[in-house]
Amino acid sequence: MAALEIAEPEKLDDAYTMLGTEEGSIRPMGGGTALMLMMKAQLFKPSKLVSLRKIEALTGFSLSVDASHIRIGAMTTFSELEQSPMIAQHLPVVTQTMKTLANVRVRNVATVGGNLAHGDPHLDLPPVWSALGASVRIVGVDGERVVPAEELFLGYYETVLAQGELIADISVPVRPGWRFFYAKVTTRAEHDWPALGLCVGVRAEGEVIADVSLVLSAAVDKPTRLKSAEAALRGVALSDAALAMAADAALAEVHIEGDGRGSAAYKQQLLRVHLGRAIKHVMQGSASA
């Protein structure tokens, strides 16, 4: 790892100044796990890291007074969410996802904002935030903007964030009547990066899928909403035929690439199988929100 400088601003404005707006070798740093890996592999040699850990505006998480949404500061660590009874009550899918996300030490330092800004399609939480309908508040020297989580990602390690822009927090709606589940499908070992990540949310009315939210990750270059598959399921009673149609629709609307975790054809099979299983799972109410 090459020599570098570290700055620790306490105010957002100072961070903007330090980061500048020129693409280059100055990077903001949250928990730093992903950055450290890239720096150690000499894939990335920053001249300066701007640590965000002292900026209070980026910390904390809480339920809104009307209990309609949860604001999560970008510097919130995964462990803080994992151990929160409030999160377990209102966003149980987040608690469920944590159990198999990396390992305890990573969860102790990795942050919600850093994880989103990294843009790696294999990460577990971005599809969950997307499926939940979270929005991301981005701040910068020119003010702030709010982007739906699923629109944050442009492609493989690419996001809409410009140099000098930071994720301030995310707002996650609490959605009564919905049940969510994150299926992490690994193929090379029990504990691995996912070959396929799939977050499924359903609002059921009896046996009928009144509304549905499906976001696929890992097998694609960015977390991707399966819009056609959602359309195929919306308002339909749960049946194997309906699930098969939804799977066909999903396979038609995304481009799956093969890699070390599986060939394209095999991952397509995994998507077909696990889409059906995940929807059945939430319809049966094993996961609730």
Binding site: T187, R188, G258, G262, S263, A264, A265, Q269
Partner: peptide, 21 residues
């Protein structure tokens, strides 16, 4: 013996081999 190797062998046996990358 990976999951994909098993699945491929099953498809092969069914006469519906899985496409290779």
């Amino acid at each position: 013996i990976t999951p994909e190797a098993i699945f491929r062998a099953m498809q092969e046996a069914k006469g519906a081999p899985l496409e290779e990358d």
